[in-house]
């Protein structure tokens, strides 16, 4: 049994210690918001937070996550009200939506570390996330917007 915490809930998982976190989250724990896109750390669709850091869960073995804290898209906020989610909704970012869990999880780390990211910061932080639908322009605008929302929130 491997013990992991996902979105604040403890799970004792009976799995091959080499199984990537992605498949544990999707097939065993049953949270399907985290997506499979490449299985090779190339696309970012599987991005989750491991102790607050963005990791590609498709190449993160479950035993590396043992005893640690994992947050998936389902745990990013309680009511879809993280500043990024608000901005994504306001600017109609998603098309097919498949990459967007990963995009949001990557952007969330950027926004936590950098209250006012520049275009270059966004390029750097988001370059590991592919969007085949081509929503990049809106993702960029929505991250700037989310930074505004976050600053407004901080003032209150």
């Amino acid at each position: 049994m491997i013990n992991i915490t996902v979105n604040g809930q403890h799970h004792d998982v009976d799995a091959d210690p080499n199984m990537p976190l992605l498949w544990v989250i999707r097939d065993i724990i049953g949270l399907t918001g985290t997506k499979y896109g490449c299985g090779a750390a190339q696309c970012g669709a599987c991005t989750v937070h491991l102790n607050g850091e963005a990791v590609r869960s498709c190449v993160t073995k479950i035993n590396r996550a043992a005893g640690q804290n994992i947050v998936t898209i389902e745990g990013l906020s309680i009511n879809n009200n993280h500043p990024l989610q608000l901005a994504w909704n306001e600017m109609n970012v998603p098309q097919c939506g498949y990459c967007q869990s990963g995009q949001l999880m990557s952007a969330a780390v950027l926004l936590r570390e950098n209250l006012n990211p520049t275009d270059q910061d966004i390029d750097d932080a988001m370059s590991g996330n592919i969007c085949r639908c081509g929503t990049y322009q809106r993702i960029r605008a929505a991250i700037h917007k989310a930074a505004d929302i976050q600053r407004e929130g901080a003032k209150i």
Partner: peptide, 21 residues
Amino acid sequence: LQRLDTPMKTNGEAIFGLDKR
């Protein structure tokens, strides 16, 4: 108008083929 499928595509709720169980 805002798309009706946006909220569920920002919180992991939308069910794609691979998510069917």
